[in-house]
Design a protein around this nucleic acid. Structure first.
Lengths: 321, 321
DNA sequence: TTGTAGGCGTTATCAA
DNA sequence: TTGATAACGCCTACAA
């Protein structure tokens, strides 16, 4: 029997008789034959592989996103290669180089904090490898992206706090250098005004994610003539620092104050004093959306270029008990 | 210029003149030529890729192990493919099948809780793909493995507690079905006896990792005529449950009691009431050791089979402040 | 329904 | 020092 017959039989080609197919499959099993995917991909000049570049696997936000990507990829017979940039733009560049070398069919990337250049991503696209940015993206809007719907998340947080009768809601905003910080601030402001609560700039404080800095602004906020009774934070690690400040300095306020921040950290469930709620960014869904978008591009390779699209994934309010 | 000349030039083959090499490299850069690794691997029938199978990426213990594997692999020009079994033996089997298909050069695996069969691992070895078990392994000792030095970890824990003047040290042991549980119990017992403290079976309680079960045994321990003043737990999640029990039921004991368990969970640093210490299993080192062992086998392919070896990675005591 | 032959990109061998 | 050619394992037209 010829190799081509065997190949067709194993690929369930319609031109092969059922009898032959059965014989082939039987022998293949008996002999533990496993096709060489590498050769297959090489021949088809398609690797059925997606590259997924992540800043840091210790961050469980990304783990969930990976799970989302893997779910969609697996469902479509694609493999996923995960690589870590460790927040290092050079390492990231090396990874992308490797991904091009191994001829992945597409790349999903959450860029490192230090990534500035758009050049490598253009190179990817030129090479015919579509790219989707996940969560973090360049300001350059020439690429597809999947990101948190920050306004929506802020809206959920403010809605929750206002429904709990808070009127003086502070915002610990992220560094102004990040676009996300502005989006969340914007969402906070809109949500307040939509509910007839005037925006008070005195209640907005920029933080840099360090505990001392957070303590400093918390101190300032509590020193106001009309101090806030609730806090909306840029991310939950800030909520934890804020909470600790209150425990240490205003323990009598602990039960009255409410704190909500972005990021539903799994570790919160182990805390005695939890933030009141978290804005879950649905990173699993971000992963699935990114993978779907990427696959759409991959399947579209030949045809006309698809328009650039940015998908915003809505958030979910998680109340901690 | 012929393809073979170019190939040799790019691979820095000694039979090519410096002049030609320079010209080739220059043009390759200009034209953004990136060699097709897939074809290369195919031709060399070597993928320079290690498969790494992990039960669950949400467990940061494994993330550190991955980092260790990647460090060694990268240093030796090997790629790492990480796959999750999600504790499902069937999914795990599928992953191994895929790894064989893609002709990885070796596999490192932390088996799922439900993995029983040794067949697939034998298949891997037959196919010429060496396997190293990481952290968790089959009872079958026919395979190489890298694991925690459980006796050493127990010794560290008991040493710490005895130095803090404890004489009544309970052990919340893991399920008897796990070999690790027995090893840690054994280490506990030896360490006590070495320090002249008689082993008291009444101080040993089996737990199943559920909070209610832990509460039950804690209650029993405190009801003893001579209750323990310290606790050595199978893992830190159990320490957390034990701690909560004490906070709820014996708050006055909170400052007196010491708790030490296996596993240095990153989340501990966010707790108000921490276990006194943790036994860090050095999972990064486990990763590097596993990768080194695997590479040794890969490089040894042709030659005589290496003897089966089990590497025990020593632990580290981490005191929480 | 089955078999033959060519080719995917690279490297190794051998000839020039 | 360089070039021609075969081979890696698989798939796919096309021929039988």
């Amino acid at each position: 029997m010829s190799v081509s017959t065997v190949s067709k039989a194993l690929n369930n080609n319609s031109s092969i008789s059922t009898f032959t197919k059965e014989r082939v499959v039987k022998l293949a099993n008996e002999w533990n034959y496993i096709p060489n995917e590498a050769a297959r991909h090489f021949k088809q000049s398609k690797s059925f592989t997606l590259g997924l570049v992540i800043p840091d696997l210790m961050d469980q936000f990304y783990i969930q996103a990976i799970n989302g990507v893997e779910a969609v990829a697996g469902h479509n017979k694609y493999q996923v290669i995960v690589a870590q940039s460790h927040e290092d733009a050079e390492k990231e560049a090396q990874i992308i180089q490797n991904l091009i070398s191994s001829r992945v069919d597409g790349v999903i990337i959450a860029i490192s904090k230090s990534t500035k250049k758009t050049e490598l991503f253009q190179r990817l696209e030129q090479t015919g490898i579509p790219v989707v940015f996940l969560s973090r993206s360049l300001n350059d809007s020439a690429f597809d992206a999947v990101a948190t719907d920050n306004e929506n998340g802020a809206e959920l947080a403010i809605d929750y706090l206002v429904k709990k009768q808070h009127r003086r809601i502070a915002h610990l905003m992220g560094p102004r250098a990040l676009r996300t910080s502005h989006l969340r601030l914007q969402g906070y402001r809109c949500a307040l005004e939509k509910r007839g609560i005037p925006f008070d700039p005195a209640l907005v404080k920029e933080i840099d994610f360090s505990a001392p800095q957070t303590n400093k602004v918390m101190k300032a906020l509590f020193a106001l003539p009309d101090p806030p009774t609730a806090f909306f934070t840029f991310k939950s690690y800030v909520s934890l620092d804020a909470l600790r400040f209150i425990k240490d300095r205003y323990p009598q306020q602990l039960q009255k104050v409410d704190i909500v921040g972005f990021g539903n950290l799994p570790l919160i469930r182990y805390l005695d004093h939890k933030p009141s709620a978290s804005i879950d960014e649905n990173s699993f869904d971000m992963g699935t959306a990114a993978a779907q978008l990427l696959l759409k591009h991959i399947d579209n390779q030949e045809e006309q270029a698809l328009p650039v699209s940015t998908v915003r994934i809505p958030c979910k309010l998680i109340v901690h008990h």
